[in-house]
Amino acid sequence: MSTDSEHRSIRCMVAKVGLDGHDRGAHVIARAFRDAGFEVIYSGLHKAPDDVVQAAVQEDVDVLGISILSGAHDTLVPKIMDGLEEYGAKEDTLVLAGGVIPEEDRAELKEDGVEAIFGPGTSIEETIDFVRENAPER
């Protein structure tokens, strides 16, 4: 017998923040999430941290995936985390980061509340499995 949680659609937002214009990976993960049965919202390019926070809160997402390749992760991601906290959404949102984020910067992002960081070469299946296993229950 199946439960409601097995059929619950996970709402995900894939966000491109800052001046990073490389969005191929964001499109690939957004498509893979849709194919996995998740509801997906794509932010579009060049969003300010506050724009990402506003959209995530308004759309009541379960998962916020931040795609960043510009090297500004150490500045932009903490601003997003602070914004989520300000709106009381930090505890209810699984935040992921993807892109080129050096190993030495990952611990600080995780301390800020990023649950997982997926770099180049991570399999789509690993990312989807992580979301399914860790998305908050609503």
Rank of each mutant, 00 (worst) to 15 (best):
I117G: 00
V53R: 12
G18E: 06
G25S: 08
V131R: 02
R31A: 12
V28P: 01
I29H: 00
P136W: 07
E104C: 12
G65C: 10
L19N: 11
K79H: 12
G119V: 04
G18Q: 07
V114R: 00
G25C: 06
A55V: 12
A15L: 08
A97C: 15
A48G: 04
I124D: 00
V63D: 03
E91D: 15
R106Q: 15
L69K: 02
Q58K: 12
G37M: 04
V114G: 02
E137Y: 04
S67C: 08
S67L: 06
R24H: 10
F33Y: 13
S67Q: 06
V57N: 07
I68K: 04
D50V: 15
S70N: 04
V114I: 13
G98C: 01
V28A: 01
V28D: 01
L19R: 12
A116D: 11
L64G: 07
E137Q: 07
E91S: 13
D92Q: 13
V100Y: 12
H46D: 03
F33C: 11
I117S: 03
H27M: 14
G25D: 03
L84T: 06
V40F: 02
G98K: 00
K90A: 15
G18N: 09
S43C: 04
E104R: 13
E91H: 11
R138M: 08
K79N: 10
V53Y: 09
Y42H: 08
V40Q: 00
G113M: 10
S5H: 05
G98F: 00
F38D: 01
C12K: 04
I124A: 05
G65A: 13
T93N: 10
G121W: 02
E125A: 14
E39H: 06
F38V: 05
H7M: 12
V63S: 06
L84V: 11
A116C: 09
S2K: 13
P102C: 09
G83R: 03
E39S: 07
S9I: 15
A36R: 03
K47V: 07
M1G: 13
Q58P: 02
F130K: 07
